[in-house]
Nucleic acid binder design. Sequence first.
DNA 1: CAACGGACCTGCCTGC
DNA 2: TGCAGGCAGGTCCGTT
Length: 271
Amino acid sequence: MPELPEVETTRRGISAHIRGHTVTAAVVRERHLRWPVPRKLNALLHGQRLSAVSRRAKYLLLHFPNGTLILHLGMSGSLRVLAATTPPEKHDHLDLVFDDGRCLRLRDPRRFGAVLWTREDPARHPLLARLGPEPLSAAFDGAQLHRCATGRKRAIKALLMDSHVVVGVGNIYANEALFMAGVHPIRAAGCVSRARCDHLADAIKTVLSAAIRAGGTTLRDFTSTDGTPGHFRAALQVYGREGQACPQCAQPIRQLRLAQRSTFYCPHCQH
DNA sequence: CAACGGACCTGCCTGC
DNA sequence: TGCAGGCAGGTCCGTT
């Protein structure tokens, strides 16, 4: 579920409903996520007013006067805003109940997600402190990508998915950006020219921006059941399309395994 | 230091 | 129909 576009769409969706409201209870039903959910979350958050919901990489940051709640959705997490009286279902691990009778509910079947608390500047939290630039910011461009790629032997796709280089590029969009830029996924990062790094950086920005717009449509209503998985699927050029015709040259899309992730590419268009 | 595999989980789909 | 096996949108950590 959550690639960066969906995390950003989630942020926008929940923010409008919960920002400015005060927590009346934090209900933890399952504390065994990627890391244990902090004890005494209820004591920490009770009576605290949520001032803002921001995002860094795929982490959502809920800002309170006494600290910040850091949420990560992992592979299968989702957040919804609904009436606090709505009965929780299987895998609904956490509710933040607000003073208007609604709650923010975290569901995460695979439990790869995380709920963490910090009193410090969240940017200095160990998980966030060493992250690379945001892909849609001016700090990320072809020059930055080329600096990181220089002298590296690993596959360019693995480099794009390395959060020290740039954050938020998951498996789907790494595939799509490489196709858009005409770069072969297993090419050694150090063998990608500056000009092609420019194209790759542009492609990442283009595909993520388009997906955020599409995600906005898909997950518009956070108070209802759930966003159907992926309006943007229709826009994918190579991901999940093994054997189908390349949109540019009509040759069959191929699939391979790279760093344990499915990788899709056109052998004719990508070098 | 760089690069790679394993690990963490459940659900869903395929094929026998 | 049942069951085994493989795969899934992430990413930290230990080993080489």
